[in-house]
Nucleic acid binder design. Structure first.
Lengths: 129, 129, 129, 129
DNA sequence: GTGGTCTAGACCACC
DNA sequence: GTGGTCTAGACCACA
């Protein structure tokens, strides 16, 4: 995996990677996630960077640690992930989206049909994403 | 202006720059836009890159050229800009937005109040953006 | 300043140092606190360690940062400090205190007179502490 | 047992170890306590250090020695332990506790409910401590 | 093995 | 100058 030219900090990309796993139900409550060192090898980054990401996720109560054993998805992991990501979406993405929609005179209702189609398609083919 | 770490090709960023000027009504029909060389200096890029952007905009009938004089906003410039940008929005941005909303269980209706607030605020303070 | 033989992590000792300044009203709302590098020199530790402490305090909303300028005491800084320290006191100190009191058969009421005396004395001579 | 990073002198930690045994009723009047050499092995310290601790306890009339046989809990051992520890608590711990409580605006009455809960829990599970 | 902490030194963007 | 991020490599306590 490579992160080089992204504007997002690497440790936050690792945070998002874990969040995606949860949102896609690929990881669930009490699952052990890769150790700091494993993830560092997989992501080709310094272990410190992974540790920083995991520390961030721990503070969000998305994961917790058992010292000397590893990190695990916490019971409220999925809910906290959704909360965290909703806030990120509202603060970092929505303003840009709204601005574009405003300038192009697009209304939310104009997107309804397409969103419904998307949801249907996505639900069927989730494994492909 | 700097483009270094953006994922978007530089010439497309210049395309967007011109589109924004039109959407914000800062440039309008028959306005002369900066020459290729002027824009190249302003954007700190190679003139060839600007030429490529202007060529792209010409193909979209957003600008036209008078040989030896310069480039001008075409009569259908604003409409074509909106069409172009709507297509870009639908193809490049919407899928990601829909995916996020789906995973976070956010509905379009959940955004209505905020969008109205945004539009109100934006209309007032457009000069600031 | 030296931290070598304390069981507490250095970055948490720096956290406590800042908290004390707030609790003693030596630093107050909107005060600029020493820069990461200044504090690192003062405390004789690596700047990364100070950065970690400041990051912790930022997450507690005790301080906030202005990029390129420095860190400042946030408006809710004192309250959040008290909340944070109350929790630490309850979790880390109280159990040991209660155990000692239980084994020595000391009741809370037995301490009342002394606590009142302490408060009176402390309020007068706070500058000395 | 290890003492490395504790701020307390090692011989005083051994003193406290003996006191704890008495307070927890694990040792009682006329019990023979471990010999200096046994204790030195157990605590992984120099026998001189243990001797210093036992001498201190003898001066407090908590233990007494029968030449050539060993050290024993003295009849007033428990009471003297309590007296000794109460004084230590009042001189070494209370000031810090009072200072923290003062700065955090915590009153003794605020702790009553929790202390009662603690005592109840502790009385039940003493074997676990 | 695991996570937690710390140092040293580097580069970046922002002001 | 400021804070933010990242790497490299080290040592610790815990299990």
């Amino acid at each position: 995996m490579q992160f080089d030219n992204s504007p997002q900090a690497i440790y936050l990309q690792i945070v998002d990677y874990v969040c995606e796993k949860l949102l896609l139900k690929q990881w669930t409550i009490e699952d052990k996630i890769p150790s700091v060192r494993e993830m560092a090898v997989k992501m080709e980054v310094n272990p410190n960077t992974v540790a920083r990401a995991y520390d961030f996720l721990k503070q969000q109560s998305i994961i917790y640690d058992k010292r000397g054993i590893g990190y695990f998805i916490s019971p409220e992991g999925l809910n906290n992930t959704i909360s965290y990501r909703k806030q990120e979406f509202a603060e970092k993405e929505l303003p840009g989206i709204f601005r574009t929609m405003y300038l192009l005179d697009v209304e939310l209702d104009d997107l309804k049909t397409e969103f419904e189609k998307f949801k249907e398609l996505y639900a069927k083919n989730q494994k492909l994403f």
